[in-house]
Design a protein around this nucleic acid. Sequence first.
DNA 1: TTAATAGTGTCTGTCAGACACTATGTG
DNA 2: CACATAGTGTCTGACAGACACTATTAA
Lengths: 249, 249
Amino acid sequence: MQASGSKQLHSKAPIVTVDVVLLTLKDEQLCAALLQRPREPHAGEWTLPGGFVHTDEDEDTLAAAARILSTKVGIESPYLEQLQTFSGPHRDPRGWSVAIVYYALVPHDSVPGEAPAPRAEHAPATVLSIAAPPRLKWRPVDDIRSLPFDHLQILRTAVERVRSKTLYSSLPVHLMSATFTLSELQAVYEALLGTRLDKRGFRRRIEELDVVEEAPGAPVRGAHRPAQRYRMKRHGAQRLAVSPKNLTL
Amino acid sequence: MQASGSKQLHSKAPIVTVDVVLLTLKDEQLCAALLQRPREPHAGEWTLPGGFVHTDEDEDTLAAAARILSTKVGIESPYLEQLQTFSGPHRDPRGWSVAIVYYALVPHDSVPGEAPAPRAEHAPATVLSIAAPPRLKWRPVDDIRSLPFDHLQILRTAVERVRSKTLYSSLPVHLMSATFTLSELQAVYEALLGTRLDKRGFRRRIEELDVVEEAPGAPVRGAHRPAQRYRMKRHGAQRLAVSPKNLTL
DNA sequence: TTAATAGTGTCTGTCAGACACTATGTG
DNA sequence: CACATAGTGTCTGACAGACACTATTAA
């Protein structure tokens, strides 16, 4: 037994883990981060990043999720939000378990690659997990057909949430690099939704949401007419702008 | 320690509870159910219904929430949905804790009153906590200024969620009796939103949502023109209809 | 008939979708 | 110049908000 030494004599306490669905956009495809498990159960298989709560250092499960991303994937302060809690006697072979699940969005260019040891090209910051290097890979979410535990269901739930929020919010800006053009942003929305969007309507909408602003510096000088660079507005920490137009009865 | 006897030597496992924000509408006011705690911590104080997961009988935390409502409040199969999971080292004096929180909506006429001992009508199953019968009361949510643990924050989050969903969904039908008139339903929406709504627009909207149907039987013969009775459509179990109009980018 | 509530018809301003247009760069 | 991408102007059908109207009961 554990902390509550007096009352719960009937049943064992559940196992508690925190899992993270880490998503990015790569070649117009939404991809999820998978780690190869170093230990049983399901040793050697690819799963969502996860781990136990460290009650001696984590302030809450959000902090635990951030720690797991930092430690096991080498990603710092991404957009991170609680998804849902999954539970049951069979989802983990070790017994009755609870998984508090978060989802995270990161721009593709701030992400460690697929090497057993992280590539040198990106992520110059020290990656602490070098000692027991977890293998990392990114897989398009629509290609993932099975995962250990109930991680496939968790992944599907997270993807559904992200796609759904894309319809009425500015969530996808968290998939963009530090600066980006509106055309790039539109391409990201289109990739997530699997639809073409009208340029005029898209720009009207983004402007209403009021979450991006012109970034200083030179415009993008591509093959043709240069494009204005934009960046995310930082209101407070990481607020989600939802169109007020969609909230009318 | 617990099931995972090998890896987590660093920190104690968190305490896991399931709490429920149980809401109903009474005299045009949204009210929450509060129970008087029979035990420490906060013995004698009024809190949200809650309890431990019984890993030997609960299929998941949703089932645990349903069991807690049935056992401790005497309410069977209400609308029940996961709200959010709260966690941290300080929210419960017993230690680092996780609360998986659900919210439930019930029609006012299917609800036990404020009696000291629970009525005999429900909960025929053995109630283990009969020794110290939990007292129940209903308080308007806007009058509740403080609660033990972090239950005030939890309550506020649930109320915000319900009011927000009222704007674009049919959630409030779960606050209605078995049959009801459209005027009554509109009054409930108005009470939740604190706004007057246009009758024509309201009826258009409810029709689009396609969640109510005409109920058989005599119309309501009140003081004046009789009104058609309606009832909730049962699609599957308890689906939530969201207006598709609000999901356009 | 009056009062009160149930329920419908319909006008209108607003806005999203559509699409044509201009602007500005490269080669 | 042709071409490609960036960015804007603007028309129009649909629809939500508003509100007047009819319908049906009791007293």
